[in-house]
């Protein structure tokens, strides 16, 4: 359903002590949008992503997921979510993929994938297993379903983590540098899965250093710098003549990939 706003973030601020990391960031994602968040390390892009599903609590600002606002209250001067129940619900609608996969080490790949649907969404186990096997097929590791995370390569673990997030049938997928912890030869297999997901119409927010992904797969590029959005736009404009001086300098560091 293009035109439906899946995620809307208004004026998010976040400080760690005296240090303000996010200085008022806004962003809207419509259904099917694939947005790449670029920026040097320390620009606040990961913190921004983690504020969206409240792994970090923003000091100020509003977040709407599929039209539902996350209710916040001020307590002792600190911004806090009003209801843990709502937070859990919102999180179940946002799929998160971490830099270091964060699979549950004591569970098999299949158990990792069905954990959320069975225990958070409380759906029938048999149904979840069937869906999980289809998802593992889709990310290309169906034969690993009874293996444990430690027995898989990084690329396979990350694909399992993507399947785990997809099993929750999320409205939006958040990727926090999904290929940064991988050996170079394993990056491709993860990017292929992400590209297929984008082509299926999944709404995605991707913090990444993969310029080729930002340029060729996403339909919008947001460049963050020192806690603000420096510039944003369609990849062709951003990587073409429309680039801001700061962005031009930033992508200059990735010269080999242009």
């Amino acid at each position: 359903m293009p035109g439906v706003t899946r995620l809307s973030v208004r004026n998010i601020r976040k400080s760690f002590g005296d240090h303000e990391v996010l200085k008022g960031i806004s962003l809207d994602a419509e259904d099917g949008d694939v947005i790449s968040l670029l920026g040097a390390s320390g620009s606040g892009k990961s913190t921004f992503l983690r504020c969206i599903n409240l792994l970090e609590t923003a000091s100020d600002g509003e977040i709407f997921v599929d039209g539902e606002q996350i209710r916040m209250v001020k307590k002792n001067g600190q911004n806090r979510p009003e209801s843990q129940k709502q937070v859990d619900h919102i999180r179940s609608e946002l799929g998160m993929v971490f830099q270091s996969f964060n699979l549950w080490s004591h569970m098999t790949i299949l158990q990792n994938v069905i954990e959320g649907p069975v225990h958070v969404l409380k759906r029938p186990k048999a149904e979840c297993i069937a869906e999980a096997e289809a998802l593992l097929e889709k990310v290309g590791i169906a034969d690993k379903r009874h293996a444990y995370p430690a027995h898989l390569s990084g690329g396979q673990q990350q694909r399992a983590a993507i399947a785990r997030a997809l099993a929750m049938k999320p409205k939006v997928m958040l990727f926090d540098e999904p290929t940064s912890a991988l050996d170079p030869e394993l990056v491709g297999e993860v990017l292929r899965v992400m590209r297929a997901l984008a082509e299926d119409g999944m709404t995605m927010l991707v913090v990444t250093h993969e310029m080729s992904f930002a340029r060729n797969v996403s339909n919008r590029v947001v460049f963050m710098r020192q806690g603000v959005v420096d510039s944003s736009g369609a990849p062709d404009d951003m990587f073409g003549s429309g680039a801001s001086p700061a962005f031009r300098q930033f992508i200059g560091h990735f010269g080999g990939e242009q």
Partner: peptide, 13 residues
């Protein structure tokens, strides 16, 4: 990190 992954799919308490 494993705890964070659990929070991220909506687990708490």
């Amino acid at each position: 990190k494993e705890i964070e992954a659990a929070r991220a799919i909506g687990m708490s308490g």
